[in-house]
Design a protein around this nucleic acid. Structure first.
Lengths: 351, 351
DNA sequence: GCGTATCATGAAAACGATTCCATTATAGGA
DNA sequence: TCCTATAATGGAATCGTTTTCATGATACGC
């Protein structure tokens, strides 16, 4: 591979001048610039970013640490981040923490080692100690989607409390009184906030909170199914379920089916976060939709601004609005449940 | 940030010895190793990968260049790659070429600049010239999912011909004679191969090929919708559609609906590649499913083997089997079409 | 007891760029 | 004419690690 020195020799200049051309420095003679560019083209020279980063102490790369890439919400956030990064010439390192603080710690060490210029993270839990490696090294960081106790840096999140209140109120207005709240880990702020919104809506309607109806598990389909089985076994059973995210809702649909019941005839269902776009050919779930793409976009912008300005501005918090999309699963739509159809015949044939 | 020299001083050894400990070299005294490790822990030292890569000329990173991350097929491939990479301690740089040769060229330059050790690529088209930068620099490369004319390196792909033949034969067995083939760009080998399988199945059944029924467009929903409108306007219209991938199939469903028709009552539909797992709560599409995850896994393994062995082995080609999953959209399942339901009422409410 | 492995360690060079500082040439102002 | 500002350029140091080579110490075989 040709280096900057090969280019320099061929263009009869010093490596310094080549570097100037590469970086668009203003004080280079036009003729020289031409010669250098010709040499670059002739050699097929591509700058070695590793060497550049070592000397310049900036890699123009950022880390994006997400809790679960199998949930379509997060890839959507990632696309927002990537689009913003592309515009500003940054590379994104995508890491999947699996909602696991230990795995997250390993990734943090890895990206610090990679010398990323900044970090976007949706932390596995709300303990600020987990972010200590970033704080200690003064690595610019934006926290996405979740609160971290005692962390006063830049952050972007959706209005979890408002969205949860909206969904719960909608169920109440449909006449439901026994509404189960199936949530993620109690240690993540989104679980806490969505529970708070649920609680607020109940209180406003004068409905007492039944602790049996509130469950904390994981933001996964399997956990959602388990929690659903648990609450549906109660006497009396809830008539509606509020799932704290889409994966839990999918688990709820599954479990409801397993019990021979139907959504929404037997159990109404609402949840946070929309499902994958391709599932929307069959619009079904009533959801509180967070602007995932915009969340990624704004978070990245916040980070890039911070990278430019340093600590000039005080920390910024962006709270994005949440909108409710009333579809089918809450029971207020017309028509009959998709799930009431006989399940189509599925056969598998190898080639 | 502490460096290897800081660790060396604190442990009273030379930086060389610290490096040896870091890299698990065998000939280091146990006591020394202990002292060094203690110093590392006390300082919270994390090696600078950038500096390491510059000197060692290996970054332990690979590039994965995909044509469309919004199609769930590719993230699934990516997960396979990432899991394999994680096991071997490699970092994956994910790039989205958007099926665009120019964008792909830019990404290639970027990842060469990043000094990746190897490249996994599903090329935007079958022209080997696009991969010249990789070949010139002798960067180990594995081609995924598609053929490249005149390229004899390592490759992993699905059995496109076999899968296409399977799907087409299934439609023929259901009695269809006018089957439209809606494909991606004619310049990608998957389009070519799936067309070849389609053609073979027709020939075997003694059905003449009607060129009007064969369309090449893009692997996108919008293109699928356009092509569907075009073939459904023919006289006589086709009674079945074979979509060359899932996105085209989604476009077909959309267009069929727009014309007031139903799948599968009015038009049967089959396609290549499954849709997102969350859509499978409502199993609908009859598909030829490629083992996407395994494709990513095998491709990464092939690359890592190549990185270890150099050119010791001749190029390897892995062809993965394709299986047909017969569901609903081809018309051979029982029950009625999901799409015959009144579309549920959808309302949007802001928080 | 001598030559030869083997072990443990370090000094210095190297990787390929950028940064800092110095130098030369030219133009412009007094 | 002389002084200074500006433009264009290059030499040398530098970023933090690994690699290469050298060295001293200890053990081993005969």
């Amino acid at each position: 591979m040709p280096t900057i020195n090969d280019v320099a020799k061929r263009a009869n200049v010093s490596p310094v001048t080549v570097s100037r051309v590469l970086n668009g420095a203003p004080n280079v003679n036009d003729m020289t610039r031409l010669r250098v560019n010709r040499a670059i083209a002739e050699l097929g020279y591509v700058p070695n970013i590793v060497a550049r980063s070592l000397r310049s102490r900036r890699t123009r790369s950022i880390a994006l640490i997400l809790p679960d890439i199998t949930n379509p919400f997060w890839p959507t956030v990632a696309r927002g981040v990537e689009d913003a990064a592309q515009r500003d010439g940054y590379t994104v390192l995508l890491c999947n923490s699996d909602e696991n603080a230990q795995k997250q710690a390993r990734y943090l060490e890895a990206v610090i080692s990679q010398q990323v210029d900044g970090v976007l993270i949706a932390p596995a839990n709300s303990d600020a100690a987990n972010l200590a490696p970033l704080r200690d090294r003064a690595i610019p960081t934006v926290v996405i989607d979740r609160r971290v106790d005692g962390w006063d840096g830049d952050a972007v999140r959706g209005d979890s409390v408002g969205g949860a209140e909206l969904l719960t109120r909608h169920l109440i207005e449909l006449g439901h009184r026994r509404i189960a709240m199936l949530s993620g880990p109690a240690t993540t702020s989104t679980s806490q906030d969505r529970f708070a919104g649920y609680q607020a809506a109940l209180q406003r309607a004068g409905i007492p909170l039944d602790p049996d109806l509130v469950r904390f598990g994981e933001f996964r389909q399997g956990s959602g199914a388990e929690m659903t089985h648990a609450v549906l076994a109660l006497q009396p059973a809830p008539t509606a379920i509020f799932a704290a995210n889409n994966a839990i809702a999918l688990g709820a649909i599954q479990a409801v089916g397993e019990r021979g019941l139907q959504v929404p005839q037997d159990v109404a269902l609402v949840c946070f976060d929309d499902v994958s776009p391709s599932a929307q050919l069959f619009p079904f779930l009533t959801v509180a939709e967070q602007p995932a793409y915009q969340m990624g976009l704004e978070a990245a912008r916040l980070l890039f601004a911070r990278l430019d300005e340093g600590d000039a501005h005080p920390p910024r918090l962006i709270t994005l609005p949440v909108r409710m999309i009333v579809r089918y699963s809450c029971g207020s739509g017309r028509g009959e449940s998709i799930l009431s159809l006989p399940l189509p015949h599925t056969a598998v044939v190898a080639a």
